[in-house]
Amino acid sequence: MNTNNFSQRISGTTEQPELEILNFPASKLNKPYPLLFIHCFSGGAWMFAENYASFFNHQGYDVFALNLRGHGQSQGKETVNQASLQDYFQDVVRAIKFVKSLTETYPVVIGHSIGSILTRLYIQDYELPGAILMSFGDVKTAFSAFMIWSMKNFPVKSLKMMISGKSEKMYGHFEPHFRILFTKTDNRLKLKPFVQRFVEQPESDRVFQDVQQLPPIQRGTGKTPVAIIVGDRDPIAPKKSVEILADLYQSSPVFIANKAHDLFVCDGWEQGADEILKWLEKNHL
């Protein structure tokens, strides 16, 4: 785990909570743009601190990882269940501005799952040096396929989640979370502490519902180069949904073999990191 990091605070207001952003400065900075990671549903900045931060520091990148409101040491835990997707989006906007104020340049934003959706919403209206969308495809197609997967594999928990509107009915249990994040060949014992962190993280049922009702996200100006990286066994990013997303951004998707939704703490996490690095270097970022 990377220990060369420190927690910084993005100042809050009466309407916006104070946010925590982890900063992993490179000892030998030689890249033009910092990297900003945005985590998934029930995740946190800790996901990227495990392996990716150190990997990209060694390549000369300054690395930042945001904790959305109610996650990590960001404020808003007591009200996170009422947070909307737009609230999370405003957190991302503030984080990008914060990184820009520190580094004097906009970051390349790497969004995972819900973080990928938030990144797409940002480049719909604003430009970035680059955007990397991980572990999600076209929202409507992906969500429909995921609900079918959920009903097939966890029918009782899925039904309770749909009837109650509470994501914890499914995500508050170890086994569904493990099966979403990892494959059968991944080491359950080794990964148990990570899965438990996902299970214990309070989340917003409103965000879960907002994603289902989200209007189609537009490409925007198209000037931001976009990479798409997913595991080929990810139940949240089936191939059809990824191909639709890739067509929208005129990007060639990368499928990581034998990986599910997590690409950060699993054995073989280097595969995803290597693909990001190759794309960054190809685009001179």
Score class of each variant (00 low, 15 high):
167 S>W: 06
111 G>C: 06
116 S>W: 00
120 R>G: 01
153 N>A: 05
113 S>E: 07
167 S>R: 08
112 H>N: 15
143 F>N: 15
175 E>Q: 15
158 S>K: 04
147 M>P: 08
128 L>H: 00
158 S>V: 09
180 I>S: 02
137 G>P: 05
186 D>T: 02
111 G>I: 03
133 L>E: 00
127 E>V: 15
128 L>W: 00
158 S>P: 14
186 D>C: 06
191 L>G: 04
143 F>Q: 15
149 W>K: 06
132 I>V: 15
157 K>M: 10
130 G>L: 05
157 K>Y: 07
152 K>N: 11
148 I>C: 07
160 K>N: 07
132 I>E: 11
139 V>G: 04
160 K>W: 01
136 F>I: 14
130 G>S: 05
170 M>D: 03
170 M>Y: 10
178 F>A: 01
143 F>A: 12
193 P>K: 01
136 F>H: 12
173 H>L: 06
151 M>D: 03
167 S>Y: 10
159 L>V: 05
161 M>H: 07
127 E>S: 11
197 R>F: 11
155 P>N: 01
137 G>F: 07
179 R>N: 15
142 A>L: 04
191 L>T: 04
107 P>C: 05
115 G>Q: 07
157 K>F: 12
141 T>L: 06
168 E>F: 08
170 M>L: 13
161 M>E: 09
197 R>C: 05
128 L>C: 01
197 R>N: 09
171 Y>S: 14
181 L>C: 13
147 M>R: 11
153 N>R: 08
104 E>F: 13
191 L>Y: 04
141 T>D: 02
117 I>P: 10
176 P>M: 03
111 G>K: 14
168 E>S: 13
140 K>R: 15
114 I>G: 01
104 E>A: 14
109 V>D: 13
177 H>M: 12
138 D>W: 05
111 G>P: 09
177 H>D: 15
173 H>Y: 12
167 S>V: 12
159 L>E: 07
140 K>P: 01
105 T>R: 13
182 F>M: 04
146 F>M: 14
138 D>V: 02
105 T>V: 14
141 T>R: 14
184 K>V: 07
166 K>Q: 14
149 W>H: 04
125 D>W: 08
180 I>V: 12
155 P>E: 02
150 S>D: 10
156 V>A: 11
153 N>W: 11
113 S>P: 10
182 F>I: 02
175 E>C: 04
122 Y>P: 02
190 K>V: 02
128 L>N: 02
181 L>P: 02
183 T>E: 00
170 M>I: 13
114 I>R: 06
115 G>K: 08
182 F>P: 02
167 S>H: 12
119 T>K: 03
155 P>T: 00
170 M>V: 14
108 V>N: 05
132 I>F: 08
153 N>K: 08
176 P>F: 03
129 P>A: 11
123 I>D: 05
105 T>S: 15
139 V>Q: 12
132 I>Y: 04
144 S>W: 05
140 K>I: 09
129 P>N: 08
123 I>H: 06
131 A>C: 05
139 V>H: 06
147 M>T: 08
189 L>K: 15
197 R>Y: 10
127 E>P: 08
185 T>P: 00
127 E>H: 12
105 T>L: 07
151 M>E: 09
131 A>H: 03
184 K>D: 09
150 S>R: 15
113 S>M: 06
115 G>I: 06
112 H>Q: 10
132 I>G: 14
112 H>E: 10
